[in-house]
């Protein structure tokens, strides 16, 4: 007897690749990536700072998008592994495509987001929007 069990596919109702909202593309995160680069998120009084470890990548291999409160960093690390001759004794470094998504919990000034890449670390600064900044209220008597 044949069973009709269908695996639940959260993307079944999403548009075709390349159409619509970027977050609705079939996600690299769930399909091709085997690499989850470590990420730190820090909050300062005037900005959020996200840092991601991407050793060996070049700045032009990294794509950073911010939309509707979510920061998405994606890219691909290509290494010489397959092409190189010799004998491999260890292969611990991660390779291939990656995608990380972080929800930023407060409104940010999207126009002012900046990203820099140094020593294999991507640092993204997301300045808070005026309404999200902490401000002290004077108590008067």
């Amino acid at each position: 007897m044949k069973h009709h069990l269908t695996r639940w596919d959260p993307f079944a109702l999403t548009p075709r690749p390349g159409t619509g909202h970027p977050l609705f593309r079939p996600s690299d995160t769930l399909q091709t990536s085997t690499w989850v680069p470590p990420l730190d998120l820090t909050e300062r009084s005037d900005a959020f700072e996200v840092s991601v470890e991407l050793p060996g990548l070049a700045a032009d291999q990294i794509e950073v998008n911010y939309e509707r409160g979510t920061l998405v960093v994606r890219g691909e690390k290509r290494t010489d592994s397959a092409a190189s001759d010799g004998t491999w004794y260890r292969l611990e470094r991660s390779r291939g495509a990656f995608s990380r998504a972080v929800r930023i919990a407060a409104p940010v000034n999207a126009e002012q987001i900046s990203a820099s890449f140094r020593d294999g670390v991507l640092t993204i600064t997301l300045p808070k929007a005026a309404e999200a900044k902490r401000h002290q209220v004077q108590v008067t008597s």
């Binding site: 010799g86 260890r90 611990e92």
Partner: peptide, 8 residues
Amino acid sequence: PVDIRATE
């Protein structure tokens, strides 16, 4: 994490 490869 490391990769180690040896050639001749």
